[in-house]
Structures are given as C-alpha cells and as structure tokens.
Design a protein around this nucleic acid. Sequence first.
DNA 1: AAGCTACCCAACCGCCCGCAC
DNA 2: CGTGCGGGCGGTTGGGTAGCT
Length: 221
Amino acid sequence: MDKKPGNNSQDVEVRKGPWTMEEDLILINYIANHGEGVWNSLARSAGLKRTGKSCRLRWLNYLRPDVRRGNITPEEQLLIMELHAKWGNRWSKIAKHLPGRTDNEIKNYWRTRIQKHIKQAENNFTGQSSNEQNHDQGSTSQMSTTSSSHHHHNHAGGGGGGDAVETYSPPSYQANFEAAFQNPFPTDQSTDNIWSMEDLWPMQLLSAQSTDILRGISVVA
DNA sequence: AAGCTACCCAACCGCCCGCAC
DNA sequence: CGTGCGGGCGGTTGGGTAGCT
C-alpha cells in the first residue's frame, strides 16, 4: 500500500515524522470542506505529501474536533481496566466506550501507567519472596506481548472483525492493582500542547485566510 | 551545572480484512 | 474466483523532556 521509496522517484516524496501546524490546517480545512474518507486520494487532493494512513491517523488521534486529550479521569481509568479485563488489547473497541478518547491514547495510557502499576502490584503479591516470575526483565513492551498472547488467537486481525465477546480471563490484576494503590490515579497530566485544538479550530474557520496566517507564522518561526 | 536515565506519547510499521472490479 | 486497494487494528519505535545523581 505504501509505495516503496525505491524506484519511481519522479513522484512527490512522502513526508514522515511530526506534523507541522500548516499540514494540520490543510488537513482540517480539506476535511471541513470535503469530508473524511478515501484517505489516499484525500492526501493527494489536499496537496499533502503524506500517506493516506498518516492523514487518517493524524485526524483520528489528534485533529478531530471531539477528541479529548490528557487527564484520563478516575472513572475513565476504571472503565479502561474493566473493558480491558473483558476484551484484552482491543483498544479501538475499548475506545468506543470512552467518548473522545482514541485507541492510541488508551493504548499508550495502558502501557505506560496501568501496566506499570499492575506489574508493581503483582510483585507486591507474588514477589514478596521475590523469586520466580523473573522471565520478564520488567520491560513494558515485553509484558504486552505476554499478556496479549493469552487472548490473541482469534483476534480477527485488523478490519475490526467479528468481535465474538470472548471474555479472556486476565490475571486478577484489577484487584491487585486497586488493593495496592489507594490512589492509583496519577495526577501529573498536563495538557500543555504547544498549540491546542482550541487554537486551531477557530483558525480553520477563517478558512481562506488561514494559510496566509500560517505563512506569516512559519516565516516568523 | 552537566550528564544520565526513565518516562511519555505521537507517529510509524506490518498485518489483516472487506469490498470492488 | 482471484487480485488489488483502501481502511483499520495492535504493536513498536524514537524524540523530547522531566527527574535524578
């Protein structure tokens, strides 16, 4: 799908890496005018040197007007834990039950916060004699593979296949987790984006002028 | 004050599915 | 029926940065 970077070099090069503010605005404007979908041609028509995938991801995870960022609430965290206990790493499915949250955000949150605490909690319970359970070097990424391997077989791939509600039986980490942490909810989240969607959406309403505005910004910056 | 380490998160990657042709 | 493309998913990576020594 993504074309190989090798041969047809007369094609426009494909940009990768962090999105610039200008690219964001182009994407927002284009979707505001034409709607989303058919991402590959959208990327081309909008004049973005990005893959359709990249555009889709950027839109879904960051630019959508209804996306909520930062500050996972205790209620949301509990919900994530419950749904993960039910469904495993079906992040998009879990995300559907958390309005405004993206699968990527939930996935990251799980891996960086919850999983770490679960690990600690499990160590508190099983590791008091601190032998065994040491096939894991404590790396979070390794934990994910082990935990997902419990239920990953009938994962209907991508596509969002047919969700047979297989309730996979997790280790009783939720109990451990809650028992080990009276206040399991980290409070350090700050939503300091360099520029937020609150800044961007009013700007895109200026539609025609926005690129001029940006041109000024990028010249200054 | 400088260097190092650990953590967080945006973005990429590879794989798979569904559908149109 | 087979093939190709678009889209979606979960896993992984790497840059930035906060905290620590």
